[in-house]
Simulated assay, not measured.
Amino acid sequence: MRSHRLGILVAALWWGGITGLSFLAVPVLFAQLGSPAVAGPVAAKLFSLQCYAGLVLGVLLLMVLRRGNEQGGRPDGPTLTTLGIVLFAMLLALMQEFGVAPHIVSARASGGSLRLWHGMGTAMVFGQWLCAGVVLWRLSRAAASTPA
């Protein structure tokens, strides 16, 4: 039962962090600083930090899910699905940080396709947000169905 609670806490931190940064902090940053040239590098740093936080929280979730497996052997189907969702979100974070983010920076400097790369980065962050939300939902639903 303790691992369910820890898993829910970690998933909530992950989902809440992405929510707060992507839907609140970054839009406020652009609105208050006024210039995309000023706000962009700050937002990029925040998204980079979010990536690393997501990777750490993802690893913690993998450990919690693996340890919380009551069977002691192979994880059951729902646990495997949740593990896969966590791994997919972590892959999106890595692709965003090391694949897309450098292209955003170079497109801004060289006049490349900023719209394309920014759209891809946005889609990857949104994918991470969805994955973290699904994991949170699955863990909280599983915790609600187990006796206290």
Rank of each mutant, 00 (worst) to 15 (best):
V100K: 10
G111E: 07
L91N: 04
A37Y: 08
A44G: 14
H118A: 06
F23W: 12
G68Y: 09
T82N: 07
S110F: 11
Q50C: 10
A123F: 07
T82H: 08
G119I: 00
L87P: 05
H118E: 04
A39W: 01
G84E: 04
S22Q: 03
F98T: 10
A43D: 02
A53C: 06
T81P: 00
V100T: 15
H103R: 15
L57E: 07
V105H: 12
P78E: 05
M63H: 06
L116Y: 14
L62Y: 02
S110C: 04
Q96P: 01
A37K: 09
I18W: 03
S113L: 11
P78W: 06
A37V: 12
R115T: 06
V56H: 03
I18G: 13
L21H: 03
P41L: 05
V100P: 02
P75N: 06
I18F: 09
V59K: 11
M63E: 07
L61K: 05
T81K: 11
S106E: 14
L60E: 06
M95A: 14
G119H: 05
P78S: 13
Q32L: 12
K45H: 13
L80A: 09
Q96I: 07
A39N: 03
S113D: 15
F88E: 07
V100L: 11
S35F: 13
G72T: 07
L46C: 08
V38F: 08
G121N: 05
R66C: 12
S113W: 15
G20L: 08
F47P: 01
G73C: 10
I104S: 04
L49W: 13
A107G: 08
L29V: 00
L33Q: 01
G73N: 13
C51P: 00
G112I: 10
M120D: 05
L46M: 15
L62S: 10
A109R: 14
G17V: 00
M120A: 11
L80M: 13
D76G: 15
G17S: 03
L83Q: 10
